[in-house]
Design a protein around this nucleic acid. Structure first.
Lengths: 341, 341
DNA sequence: CTGTTAGCGCCTTCAA
DNA sequence: TTGAAGGCGCTAACAG
C-alpha cells in the first residue's frame, strides 16, 4: 500500500503538496495538482486513515451498540444512522451486545480504544448501572441513547413516543369492542417497556375500564420464552383475554407463535396488536395490526444529534430529547366481527 | 483521554514498561505490573488503537460489504463473521452497498483507507467488473466472497450449495404432485441465481419433465417489483402454474404478496417453496416451506478463511471454496391435498 | 527485567 | 504557492 511520500516522489513534489491537494485545505497550482492526482491514480493510493486519525486525533468514526441486529428493528436504525453519518463524512461501526451487560462494557472499551468520536447506544436489557453511563459522560464520550432510555441520566436520547403509541394500540382494541385485553410486555427495568405499559393503563383508564393485573404478563424479550408463557396462559378458555397487546416485536412474534400452538385465530378467536412491525411489510395471514416505529428516522436523528455534539463540541448543553411519533397500522388481527351489542 | 505516557508517569515507570504489561510481550516484575495496572485503572486508560495500528501496521479489523442488512439473511451472516472475528481478536465493520456498483467501489476505497486487513464481500447485484476484483486481489487485499460468487475470478468463497438446494425444493414439489412449477428468480448476472435455476432445471429433467421456459420469471430482487410481476402472471387461471419456486428471500416475499393480491391460498390454490427463510422462524399461516441456509455458519466460515489468509499470509495458495448444505424445511405451503391420480 | 528511542504515515504550522 | 520538519501515541528493538 503506497504512502504519501511515494506519491510525492512520483509526482515530483513535496509530501506537503500532496497533502494539500488531498485535503483541499491549501490551494495548489493546477499543474502540480494534476501531476499529484495522476500519481495517486497510478499508484492506486489510498490515504492512510489511521495515520491521519493519529495526527488529527479525529477518526471520523461513530459506534453504535445494539442488542442484536438480527432483530428487524435494529438494522433499520443502523441504516438510518449510517446514512446520516456518511452524509457528514463519518463511518459507523455497529456491534451487538446480546443484551449482556458485561459484553456491553467490553464494547464500550473497544469503541473507546478505537477512538470513535461518539456512540449511539441501545442499552442492553440487563440493567446498566447508572454510574457506568455517567462515568462515560464525564470522561467526555459523546453519547446518544436510542430506543431504550435510562432514567435519571442527563443524556441525549431519541426514541418513539412509547406511551402514546401503546395507548393508540389499546384505544384501537377498545374501539373495536375488545374488552379483556392482556398486555405482554418486556422487562420493566427498561424505561420504554414501562412507558408502553403505562400507555396501556392510560388507555384503559380513559375508557373507564379496570386494569386487571393478572392480564399483565411480563416476559424477557425472547420469543421462545414468550411463546411458552403465553401458550400456557392462553390455554384455559375461561381465563383467556379477548385480545392481546404485545409491547415489542420479539414479544409479538412470541405471542403469535403461542396463538398457533393454541390453535387460536385472529381476529375471530382473539384480537392482537403488536408494537413494532413483525416482518418487513406484514405478510402474515391474517395480517397483524401493528404500531409502526419510524426506525430509520430514529437512527438518522440520533446520529445527527451525535454529530452536532461532536462538531459543536458544546459539552454543557442540556440534553437533547427527540421523540418521534409511531403510527397505527390497522390490519386483520384486530378486525373483530361486530358483536351484537 | 489519557496516554501511555501519563500512565507511565503515574506509575513511576517508563512507557516501554507500560507497553510491556499491556501487550504481555515482555515479562514485567509483579511489583511494577501492579503499579501499572493501578495507574491504568485510576486514569481509565484505553490504549489508543489508532496509534498502535499505525505503529504495527495491523488494524485487527475486518470489513464486510453486504447489499442491505435490512434483509434478514445478512445480519445473520454478519453476526457469524463478527463472532469468528472477535474470537480471534478482530473487529468487524459492516457496510451496505444497496446493490449499487458505484457505492460498492466507494466502500472498497473507504475500507482500504481504514486499512482493514481483509474484506468479506457479498457482491452488489449490479454487475461488478471482474477486473475491479482482480485488481483488488493483485493489490494484496485479502478478500473472501460470500453468497454471491464471481465467475472466473480465483478468489476464496463461501456459500450454500445453491444448485443442490434448489433441486431439493423442486424435487419436493414434484414429489408432492405439483406439475407445472414456475421459477421466480433473480438477475442471472448473479452466479448463485444461475445455480439455483440450474437446480430447478436439473430436478425437472431428472423427473423427466419438460422445462417450460415461459414458467421462468426473472426478477430484480425487489419484493415490490416481484409482486407486481407475479400478480400479473398469476392472474390468468388458465396459464397459472400449480406451484411456484422462489429462488431467494426477497423474491419469496414478493411472490407471497402477489398470492395475496390474487387471493390465492397455499397450498390449495397453488404450492410455494422459497429459497431462504422469509422471517425468523416461519410464522406465516399457512407456513411457507423453505430452503434454509446456514447463514450464521456461512459468515463464520468466511471470516475464518479470511483470518487464516491474513495470519497465514500465504498469498499464493489455491482459492479456498466452502460450500455448506441447505436444508429443506417442509411446512404448509407445499402440502398439496393428495390429488386423485 | 527496565528504560530509551526511532519511527509508523500523515497533517500543519512556518519559512521561503 | 511550495517545501521542510515536528510530533500525534504507541511498539519494538536495543542498551543498560
Amino acid at each position: 500500500m503506497s504512502t504519501i511520500k511515494e506519491v510525492a516522489d512520483r509526482a515530483g513534489v513535496a509530501v506537503g503538496t500532496v497533502s494539500h491537494v488531498i485535503t483541499g485545505s491549501v490551494p495548489v497550482s493546477e499543474g502540480l495538482r494534476r501531476k499529484v492526482l495522476a500519481a495517486i491514480r497510478e499508484l492506486d493510493y489510498h490515504p492512510n486513515h489511521v495515520a491521519r486519525s493519529l495526527k488529527t486525533s479525529k477518526t471520523r468514526t461513530l459506534g453504535i451498540i445494539v442488542p442484536d441486529m438480527t432483530i428487524p428493528y435494529f438494522p433499520k436504525v443502523i441504516r438510518g444512522a449510517e446514512t446520516a453519518a456518511r452524509r457528514r463524512g463519518y463511518s459507523l461501526i455497529a456491534v451487538n451486545s446480546d443484551d449482556d451487560g458485561e459484553r456491553q462494557s467490553e464494547l464500550f472499551s473497544l469503541l473507546r480504544s478505537q477512538r470513535v468520536e461518539g456512540i449511539l447506544l441501545v442499552m442492553a436489557a440487563a440493567p446498566t448501572p447508572v454510574n457506568r453511563l455517567t462515568r462515560l459522560l464525564e470522561a467526555g464520550v459523546h453519547l446518544v441513547c436510542v430506543d431504550r432510555i435510562p432514567d435519571r441520566v442527563p443524556v441525549d436520547s431519541v426514541s418513539v413516543e412509547d406511551q402514546e403509541g401503546a395507548a393508540m394500540a389499546v384505544d384501537h382494541l377498545l374501539a373495536r369492542g375488545y374488552r379483556r385485553i392482556a398486555a405482554v410486555t418486556g422487562p420493566q427495568s427498561l424505561k420504554n417497556e414501562r412507558q408502553r405499559l403505562l400507555g396501556y393503563r392510560q388507555a384503559l383508564e380513559r375508557a373507564g375500564m379496570p386494569c386487571d393485573e393478572d392480564l399483565i404478563w411480563t416476559g424477557n424479550l425472547r420469543s421462545a420464552d414468550i411463546a411458552a408463557m403465553c401458550a400456557e396462559r392462553l390455554a384455559n378458555p375461561a381465563k383467556r383475554p379477548e385480545a392481546v397487546f404485545a409491547t415489542n416485536g420479539p414479544t409479538g412474534l412470541g405471542v403469535l407463535r403461542a396463538l398457533r400452538v393454541c390453535s387460536l385465530a385472529t381476529p375471530d378467536d382473539i384480537g392482537l396488536v403488536s408494537f413494532d412491525e413483525l416482518t418487513s411489510d406484514d405478510l402474515f395471514l391474517p395480517a397483524i395490526t401493528t404500531i409502526v416505529q419510524p426506525a430509520y428516522e430514529i437512527g438518522y436523528g440520533a446520529a445527527e444529534i451525535l454529530l452536532d455534539r461532536i462538531e459543536g463540541a458544546e459539552a454543557g448543553d442540556a440534553p437533547v430529547t427527540l421523540r418521534l411519533h409511531a403510527t397505527l397500522k390497522v390490519r386483520d388481527s384486530s378486525r373483530q366481527q361486530a358483536k351484537s351489542a
